[in-house]
Design a protein around this nucleic acid. Sequence first.
DNA 1: TCCTTTCGTATTTTT
DNA 2: TACGAAAGGA
Length: 683
Amino acid sequence: MRPFCYQSETCVSRLNPRQQEAMEAVSGAVLVLAGAGSGKTSVITRKIAYLIDECGLKGHQILALTFTNKAAREMKERVGQLVQGKAARGLTVSTFHNLGLNIIRRECQALGYRPGFSIFDAQDVLTLLKDLTHKEFEAAEDVCEPIQYQISNWKNDLVSPAQALAGANGPEQVLAARVYEAYEKTLKLYNGVDFDDLILQPVRLFTERPDILDKWQNRVRYLLVDEYQDTNSSQYLLVKQLVGMRANFTVVGDDDQSIYAWRGARPENLAILQADFPSLKVIKLEQNYRSTGRILKVANKLIAHNPHEFEKALWSDKGYGEPVRVISCHNEDAEAERIATEILQAQLQNQGAYKDFAILYRGNHQSRLMEMKLQTYKVPYKINGGQSFFGRTEVKDIMAYLKILLNPADDNAFLRIVNTPRREIGAATLEKLVNYATMRGVSLISASQEVGLKEYMSGNALAKVQEFGEWINGLAEQAERDDPIAAVQQMIRDMEYQDWLLQTSSGPPMAEKRMANVELLVESLKESLEVAVKKNEYADMGDAVARLVLLDILERQEEEDDSDRVQLMTLHSAKGLEYPHVFMMGMEEDLLPHRNSIDEGNVEEERRLCYVGITRARQTLTITLARKRQQFGEMLETTPSRFLDELPEADLEWEGRGDDDPSKNVQQGQATLAGLKGLLDDF
DNA sequence: TCCTTTCGTATTTTT
DNA sequence: TACGAAAGGA
């Protein structure tokens, strides 16, 4: 739970004048430039309440868009506290992708998809691309990642395969464009959409079908967009289409917190907005309710090194606060150890709970050492991000099974699971099946049931393939006819997945854990169907699975975990969060700013990343760096980050600067340890 | 078909 | 160093 209550939720008069202005600007286009910690979520939620209570809008006429499920949930909850009764009914707070999914589901036919279409996640897409490049282009598989990236960019920029091919320069681009074309065809054939399609297809539909657009425009009388700086071109276009001529909307964003440009986000959408809507009202929120004055000064000073479209200076009335500590450690080991002991010490001196501390880093790999040190000092911690639930093979397996139950055309899912667990259906048999299916122009499942297949493969192989297809078809029927959950459970039992896990896991405890994940998956599916029934909605298995792919359901489980633990995460995933005490580690050249960003001339985004990190801190900020770090196997001297030079010297408290004498550091470490021992003894 | 060895390569990742 | 992928051997 993030404390937000610097004022009562229900008391509108306590908004500051700027926030008030933002809330009351209800006609025309409004851009709220909300600095870090300036209460932007508060403005959005209040504004929704204001629209309902004061402007006579109904909940179902309002749409609020976020990027993450978490943000959407949080916003929903807060609005729920502000607006009671049925006026709020039908209010939509959703992610861009969820909105897109809903549009596609509703307008499925007009778009040429069949119900039950699959969502291909990044992993599915990569598998498909590898398959395509291998078969149709005889290209090496390792070109797939850049191609995937390129295709995603094209789709986000609404570039069609033909346009991509026409505009391609160089052989790689030509290849990418060709693969793009084949990819789009195949995806359509599989009745599948990728994440980019969730935005792109609605945009395409709205462009081609003004009648359908009209319908949606009438439904959305007021639109609000959170984290607007993170929108890409197609998302912005979707926003523009939805608001139409009426152009009644509010977008909230902060160009200084744009850290996803590498993922297609277009922070320049902020400036474009001004050009597209000349009457745009721009409101700046500069009062920060989160951090001490000093932290803000440091943050402002840093970000001032970036060029700005909109000038903005954060201030706070929270007092100046403690200096920002910069600790230069002998090496990465000492750095991690130092952070661990610092937290333990503060904890023992009762300076807050573990969960008040966050350790932020640039790359996930930096968490390793940190984890080890926290373990040795028995500091409870939680890692945010890293290997996700959906990265796990068992989850991917079951998801593929679910997808094929719902969407028999999903050959990608078929190929993933046809021989998992082992069914003695090998590469040779599959190739024949694929050839046959291609020739007949049907899905692999259908092909497996056709009589003509027997002329292409041997009796044994044929029997196995037929058996598999029959089994899947039977289950799909069962899922459709009666209880889908029962069908899924039946399926998992039938294929003896538990035994398979036992065989493929490193040991029984591991297998058990993985089976637990599978059960968790089924459980969340069940729950989501039950919720739909309770809300008197049509309990649709396809919808439940789709929401599962969009991570919506499972995140909730993790969120309920409010145990007292130190939070570890990357700077990227820290955006939007805040902690009383923040540690930023690895403040070195080549790490922050990252080597690759320096090479690409993208230091500005790294600076924003650093800015995001600094502005997470409420009370204290500690920056650490290692003078030596193991890079690619060898110990190398590091250079302190250029960003340190950009901070106001007077507000920093250095420790160990220019101190290259290792003995002193060891001593320092021992001193800390001794101190800790004393503290522990007192306990 | 599966297991071992070897080789190559090291960001960030809301959905 | 450390991990994943690809290739090659059993």
